[in-house]
Design a protein around this nucleic acid. Sequence first.
DNA 1: CAAGCCCGATACCGTACTGGTATCTTCGCT
DNA 2: AGCGAAGATACCAGTACGGTATCGGGCTTG
Lengths: 291, 291
Amino acid sequence: MMELRLLRYFVAIAEERHFGRAAARLHMTQPPLSRAIKQLETDLGVVLLHRSATGVEPTPAGNALYTEARTLLEQAEQARARVTAAADAVTLTIGTLADSAEEAGTRLAATFRRRHPKVSIRIREADFTDPTTGLRNGLADVALTRLPFDGIGISVRVLRSDPVGVVLRADDPLAGRDTVCLADLADRPWFQLPEGTDPIWRAYWNGATPVGERPAGPVVRTVNECMQAVLWNGTVGIAPLIHALPDGLTWVPLTDMPPSSLVVAWATEHESPLVRSFAHIAVETYRSAHT
Amino acid sequence: MMELRLLRYFVAIAEERHFGRAAARLHMTQPPLSRAIKQLETDLGVVLLHRSATGVEPTPAGNALYTEARTLLEQAEQARARVTAAADAVTLTIGTLADSAEEAGTRLAATFRRRHPKVSIRIREADFTDPTTGLRNGLADVALTRLPFDGIGISVRVLRSDPVGVVLRADDPLAGRDTVCLADLADRPWFQLPEGTDPIWRAYWNGATPVGERPAGPVVRTVNECMQAVLWNGTVGIAPLIHALPDGLTWVPLTDMPPSSLVVAWATEHESPLVRSFAHIAVETYRSAHT
DNA sequence: CAAGCCCGATACCGTACTGGTATCTTCGCT
DNA sequence: AGCGAAGATACCAGTACGGTATCGGGCTTG
């Protein structure tokens, strides 16, 4: 059956007059395109393109399909807009752990706004205290956050997995090392997370060992406070290896810590199409972002 | 992405207000429909249907989508018509082996005409002499015929596989049997196919044994002649067990003959989108016809 | 009010389709 | 004649799709 996907492909090829370029534009490779066009031709029972060694040339039927497909896709886009506009105006609250402002994160926001222009977005920045950013008590509808945390009642999709490392002062004896392991840090004071913090989360950022067995460091609530603690005290901090670090700090990869996953999460019982849509867009965005 | 398939599904449900009935109308089962609608809702980020124990009720967005989808599908249909109309007028010659007028065969013709209104169809009835119905010399573009035959240069898609049986006079001693095997027919005269007939084909309809080793029967060129030969001489005829037999004839299933496949076939080097379309429609039609 | 029933959702499975990698064929150009 | 570019083909892996079986939850009905 004629599907919009095939029309999108055909439009790209008709405009580029070249399978390879069209494939690049569609973020795919050339062979599936050949098949797709062949399938479209089979469906319509008509030759759409004359192939040659220099490129392709639409047949009369191909030209006709080009204009038809353009308008059809255009109308489909407008239809989608009208349908979403017919729904009640809603607000989506996105809880975030302050580190989602990276490259793919902005792409995510752009895509989501483009697809749901009528949805007003509210960002709720959470501190280090609550990895679920208030999903459970309705303060956020969906969260961009990090594993691990207590996942009861929470649905999670992994977007990316980041290795973690120690954040150190530049003049620290370990700062020159290529890698360190937890044993190297055994005698350092670790920062503490406040009472009431998710225990799984708390344990992870304390190096997966009981808090009581180390010299106590300061209590921190935000990433910034964490950085400050490293800078001013000899405190050990660990973080995913993606942050741009302020002057005077470096990080060294930790070999024996499981990587931390960036995830999109939501309260399972509050799942809604809009939340699913956000999650879907998120995994799509991050998938195409670096594969 | 929004695809026409999902819109077709949604329209059916919106009209039936019932997943089960819509599924029946779409020739499928209910669970995939649930998933499809959920996917559509996720894509649009909007609830389309209120589910209840009595059926479904479209939300405002659902009603909007219903009208949008209707027009969109309508426009897609018109677009297809305009595109095929833009192609040069063509004639498709269908070679047939005289037994394709059965139930699914007419459905095939109807579907093909509906999808390609601008294509004029010419039927070329072939006699028993040429199982390819003139595909090789261009007398036919596609054939509805039976295996086995020499397939060099011919592309084949199987539509259905029919057991074969002996055609006997009603007063024949074997006529009462439930099944017979080739050995039971060893001393009967078999009809002959003319010189020049495809040898594989010829061997098959002569019971897969060399012609010379049996009493010679009459030479036949058509199915009708074959029937007549059975009726008037003691000749043995075998046929797929689908023909309505004239009075005075019965058939008995043959246990040791491979079944004969009804196929759609075309000359590989003359393959065209229209031919592929015909073949595609053919396999679709026969698949849904009896599964 | 309890039991049965109807309807949609979910779980699970096998197949088909979609997209990727590697390679081939062909045609144009040097 | 040989090289290079473009599209086609072969093959593989991952995902999507449709089917079967089963669940959960409101109505209905005795």
